[in-house]
């Protein structure tokens, strides 16, 4: 009985996620087409007179802009191509396939933003637990204030300040690129060292600016959980503080935090334009901006598809985790 309802819960969830996925795919098709302009004019604009006027015809021919397919036909061939894994050819990086563009940029984004998000999440929650548990102590009360100020400041500003002081003036960290100029990409300690060294400053900037959010969320949840009667009961029973904090407090406070963590892990694949811009770091964010400003539908759709899939998958996993962490959910 119990097991059956769990399975039905999962089946329902899968159905719901498929529906959301279809809706997202459809929006993904419609929204870019509502933007004014097309890839050929974008390219002419970008070249600022370097492309002779007569080129417009050739560009339209290559990009298939003057296509004779009706929007409905385009929609169905788009659905079919996407589901069969054909993301098409990027206009911006013509004639490079979208899959190749994404394949080249995505690993850097996953590496930098992914790790930074996990570190920020872990550190933020630990500090959140600490400052909730020890509230009243000077340090525990100072930490939330400090990190809130940090996350309230514009990321761009903090990143530039870090870059200027630690990178440009003191020369402690490289100011650009994902690895050193003399290093070839191979599996060696030197390459790995160079990659980590180059990622340090951008990762640090992400961690210190995003940690505050996690910390506050955890702290607030924990404070309200700790005020619950069952915690009081546990304390009255004389359970060790550590156990109360871990099993009664943090575990329950973690549930809502997990949802936002899943969301942000999903959005990792969207890249971080500002990070890439300031630290001159390769990644998918720059490609996305290029795609949008160039009316590059195939690339835009490819990147949005990845973002949508990642967010949905991450949420699905959290839904499953929830049923594990809190069995009540699948019973309702």
């Amino acid at each position: 009985m119990h097991r059956g309802s769990g399975l039905r819960f999962i089946a329902n969830k899968i159905g719901l996620y498929l529906l959301i996925f279809w809706a997202a795919m459809t929006l993904n098709f419609i929204i870019p087409r509502l933007m004014p302009g097309n890839a050929a004019s974008a390219l002419m604009a970008k070249a600022q007179g370097k492309i002779p006027p007569a080129a417009l015809k050739a560009l339209e021919a290559a990009f298939g802009i003057s296509t004779h397919q009706s929007p409905v036909q385009q929609y169905f061939s788009y659905l079919k191509n996407t589901l069969t894994g054909h993301l098409g050819i990027s206009f911006t990086y013509f004639p490079v396939p979208v899959a190749q563009v994404i394949g080249e940029m995505l690993p850097w984004t996953l590496f930098l933003i992914g790790f930074a998000t996990i570190i920020a999440f872990a550190l933020g929650n630990l500090i959140g637990v600490y400052s909730a548990w020890r509230r009243g102590a000077a340090l525990a009360d100072a930490l939330p204030v400090g990190f809130t100020v940090m996350s309230a400041m514009p990321y761009f500003w903090i990143a530039l300040a870090l870059l200027y002081v630690l990178g440009f003036t003191l020369n402690w960290f490289p100011i650009a690129h994902a690895y050193g100029g003399g290093v070839s990409l191979s599996f060696s300690l030197r390459t790995l060292g160079s990659i980590l060294y180059h990622a340090a400053l951008p990762a640090f900037s992400i961690v210190i600016t995003s940690m505050g959010g996690w910390m506050m969320q955890m702290r607030n949840n924990l404070v309200s959980v700790l005020a619950d009667d069952y915690v009081l009961l546990a304390q009255m029973k004389g359970l060790p503080e550590r156990e109360i904090m871990q099993n009664y407090g943090a575990r329950n406070a973690l549930l809502p935090v997990l949802t936002s963590f899943a969301m942000s892990l999903g959005f990792v694949v969207g890249g971080a334009v500002l990070v890439e811009d300031v630290f001159n770091y390769p990644g998918i964010g720059f490609a996305l901006v290029q795609a949008v400003s160039n009316s590059d539908y195939p690339l835009m759709q490819g990147i949005f598809l990845i973002i949508v899939s990642a967010v949905l998958v991450a949420n699905f996993i959290v839904d499953l985790l929830y049923t594990f962490l809190d069995p009540r959910i699948s019973r309702t």
């Binding site: 560009l59 290559a62 990009f63 990027s90 990086y93 013509f94 004639p95 490079v96 080249e104 490609a287």
Partner: peptide, 15 residues
């Protein structure tokens, strides 16, 4: 931005 390995002078694009 980052380069993609494309060196075809006749391919219309900015890459």
């Amino acid at each position: 931005g980052t380069w993609v390995d494309e060196n075809n002078p006749f391919a219309p694009g900015a890459s």
